[in-house]
Design a protein around this nucleic acid. Structure first.
Lengths: 189, 189
DNA sequence: TTTTATTGATTGACTGATCAATTAAGACAA
DNA sequence: TTGTCTTAATTGATCAGTCAATCAATAAAA
């Protein structure tokens, strides 16, 4: 019983199912059939809308990245002064919507994919560049070595994500944000 | 033309081939056939010595971890005083033998495996615990918040590994070690 | 009737693993 | 020394299963 206008709904459902499936099954054993079943449709329909498994995974990555970007942009818009901007950037990485088991697992697998998939690598490089640019902009008026500090902050955030990916207990974004902000404060002194 | 006493040689060749294959092909597309071909033997022989693909990957992980552990122990034995111990621990993570493309790619994939493979997870937890213990031992006489600092250092090291895994240029361990040591210095002040 | 949504069935390619069979080295006895 | 037996090394052939992708067919909306 096909209803028209299903394409955006189906695509969205598939993207969400892909992320959930990465978290639950892992990127190694991920299959189109499982994603499609989770999204409530046949594997053939998933191929119909996305063309290939790779494009589905890339769409999931784009989704995660765009959610993060929107949240970061929103927080930055409200921030007044360099200190507040730094806090906004760091906290955006650890909000409940970004620092969730599902999303964290997805990130880790995107890094693995980026190793050979040029599309995934480009997306991650965009994320790196934007994070770095945001950090530098806020750090320049405060630090005498903004590049070093930005590099360290970026690495620490990624490391906290990776480590969270194999923790059993619930993520504590507040703790992580505090750790990074503490590093920044000491780096500024 | 079977020569006897081949087992240790074959196992070693397979472990090395596994690591090289992870780096070149990626953990998603890794196959026993490719590993065996790279190690100069038939897939059946690889199964004969390791029993299963999982056990081969686990052996590769153990190898990487043991090389790192040996290097860290050696450096620690020569270190005099807490400051030197910290430097030894950090530098061990970024020596050319550990901070190589191959090994870095392997690490990233071990983190992915640990998501579902209890054996891999246990090995990583052992690594985490040992790194943390080493750092705490050296930090306690120097810092008033050794736990926080140890957590941050561990995360930053992991993050630098993950980021190195998708860089195109050659790794610069010296730069990375300097970044982490700079973080520690500032954290102590 | 044209277009969109949807799927069952199928294909072709691969994969991990198994096993029987082959080769040679070392041990031991005649 | 020679011949036999055991054991380790090694592989080709093969199996059973899985997966991404394709396609023809169906059903409903416009």
């Amino acid at each position: 019983m096909p209803r028209i206008g299903m394409e955006p709904l189906r695509r969205d459902a598939l993207v969400r199912a892909t992320i959930a499936e990465i978290a639950e099954t892992g990127a190694t054993d991920i299959t189109v059939a499982r994603i499609a079943r989770r999204a409530g449709m046949s594997p053939a329909l998933a191929h119909h809308y996305f063309g290939s498994k790779d494009r589905m995974l890339l769409a999931a990555m784009r989704h995660v990245l765009s959610v993060y970007g929107a949240e970061a942009r929103g927080a930055l818009a409200m921030a007044d002064g360099p200190h507040a901007r730094l806090e906004a950037i760091v906290r955006a990485s650890f909000t409940p919507s970004n620092f969730r088991d599902e999303v964290v697992a997805a990130w880790l697998n995107f890094y693995v994919r980026a190793h050979r998939d040029a599309g995934a690598r480009r997306l991650l490089q965009v994320y790196h560049a934007r994070l770095r640019s945001n950090l530098l902009h806020a750090l320049r008026p405060l630090s005498d070595a903004p590049e070093t500090l930005a590099e360290g902050v970026g690495a620490m955030i990624d490391g906290l994500y990776v480590r969270q990916a194999l923790r059993r207990d619930a993520p504590d974004g507040a703790d992580c944000a505090r750790l990074v902000l503490d590093y920044i404060e000491r780096g500024l002194a």
